[in-house]
Amino acid sequence: MKTETIIAEAGAGVTSGVTPTWTDLDPPPRRRPAWTRWAAALAKHLLMIAVSVVALYPVLWMVASSFRPDSEIFGTASIFPDSFNLDNYTAGWNALTKPFSTYLINSAIVVGGAIIGNLLTCSMAAYAFARLRFRLRGPAFALMLLTLMIPIHVVIVPQYIIWAKLGLVNTFVPVIAPKFLASDAFFIFLMVQFIRGLPRDLDEAARIDGAGHGTIFFRILLPLMTPALATTAIFTFIWTWNDFFSQLIYLTKPDLYTVPVALRSFIDATSKSSYGGMFAMSVVSVLPLVLAFAVGQKYLVRGIATTGLK
């Protein structure tokens, strides 16, 4: 046990990661000689540390670059900043016609709407596909999958025309409303798979007891789907936060620009561009994602196993 702690601390550099609930949950390990377990733990941590280095390196490089002057960014792959200059941050924050906070707020609005929409409507659709019998279920499911396969580039123009006709271009509606109409088939399919993994006995028992579909869905399945819902929320956050194309097309007023659209506006390939400012603002814009993941990840693992279901 001792070695494990030491390695964990050395590898992560931070000591907090002890999650008591987690260890409690695990299947009881079979007894093996102590040295075998130590060796196994050591090997495992070494692997984890190696993967961590590969995963962390680019992030650290980006952070280091955000402190470097433009001329030094492209020359070095080092992750150790030679200077700690905050100029890029102050310059980047004000480089475009609005302060960067405008774009952060706009992105937050879009992301917030998208998360609520996806959680609500995708889970509802998933319940129908996973648990209900209805006519045209097969074709409807196929149609849903079809929307995942068609490249956005050939449907964006017809979609743009719809929103333009409704006079809603340059509002957040075209980027949020689809999420309230369960347009992210990825999450419907994800939740269908999770619901199908839940024992059907549960809802059948409830049904016999007189519960309607609303009760079964909201009171029984949803609480058991926490990992799937957390996954949906986190992925929606990240993908919407990074989504460039639709936000570029629908939000053309600088007041409405979101983070990815603003970040691209820093760079012009044919002239001198503020790469330092772009990197600094990239770091700023990744922070909410890191926070969201750090907060959200514990819900990812609160499944059926933690609900006290015996």
């Binding site: 480089a95 475009l96 016609t97 506006s265 820093f266 760079i267 012009d268 002239s271 001198k272 561009s273 503020s274 400012g277």
Partner: peptide
């Protein structure tokens, strides 16, 4: 189109 200097 352009970079930040042009926008400003």
């Amino acid at each position: 189109w352009g970079g930040d200097a042009r926008h400003e």
